[in-house]
């Protein structure tokens, strides 16, 4: 990928901010906080796409940046907030399987692992894409960790979306020439998935007045 040095630096910077917002969703205790952290993270993703678009002049990346902004920064957070009741949205303390300090330490370890991965991957280690790749892989792993460590439905959805954001950053950092149709397909899947999960969460709220997935123990016919 023919990046100039300054563009590489800017992408590094945005990838770092992206990673910091991933950590924000690890520490967020309120549901609204989780959703805002995801929106912020998506905003940095759109900024990365826009930066690479300006640098390479590829028209499809401009479209991608715009679609990411529309779908991930505005639509999905709005949808997630709509799918749960305000009283749950504003609940201050969510329930966790693992506490925040343990999650932070584990996320730190995951960053080290992905840094090592990015540094050892042949062909990538010396390219300017390495920091963004490392941040992307770390975000995928941390997204999975959010899904494991949380008990509430909406933060679990946010974990999945976070992992997907990381995937998109990896794709942008390594092969920015991915055809638009692939990206659009992924985004469409995402919107459909979030819609379905939103409906499920909504049902959980209606039936059980909670979004705690730990209480989903039995299947009822």
């Amino acid at each position: 990928m023919p990046h100039s040095v300054s563009v590489g630096r800017l992408v590094d910077l945005l990838a770092t901010l992206f990673l910091i917002s991933t950590f924000a969703s690890v520490v967020a205790r309120q549901m609204a906080g989780c959703i805002y952290a995801y929106a912020t993270q998506s905003m940095f993703l759109a900024a990365v796409a826009l930066t690479i678009a300006v640098a390479t002049g590829a028209p499809h990346l401009f479209i991608l940046a715009g679609v990411v902004l529309g779908v991930k920064v505005l639509f999905i957070p709005w949808l997630l907030k709509r799918s749960i009741h305000d009283s749950i949205l504003e609940k201050r303390e969510l329930s966790f399987y693992f506490g925040v300090p343990a999650s932070l330490v584990i996320s730190g370890v995951l960053v080290v692992v992905s840094d090592g991965f990015a540094a050892r991957l042949p062909g990538i280690a010396v390219s300017p894409a390495a920091p963004a790749l490392s941040a992307g892989v770390a975000t995928i792993l941390i997204g999975f960790w959010i899904m494991i460590s949380r008990r509430e439905a909406v933060p679990q959805v946010v974990g999945l979306l976070t992992a997907e954001n990381g995937l998109m950053l990896v794709a942008l950092a390594t092969v920015s020439c991915l055809p638009l149709i692939t990206d659009m397909g992924i985004l469409l899947d995402l919107v459909a998935g979030v819609l379905i999960m939103g409906i499920l969460v909504r049902h959980m709220v209606v039936v059980g007045r909670t979004t705690d997935t730990a209480r989903l123990q039995r299947l009822k016919g």
Partner: peptide, 10 residues
């Protein structure tokens, strides 16, 4: 993380 990113050369 700052130390890690620096020492990893990233």
């Amino acid at each position: 993380l700052a130390v890690i990113t620096y020492t990893m050369g990233i």
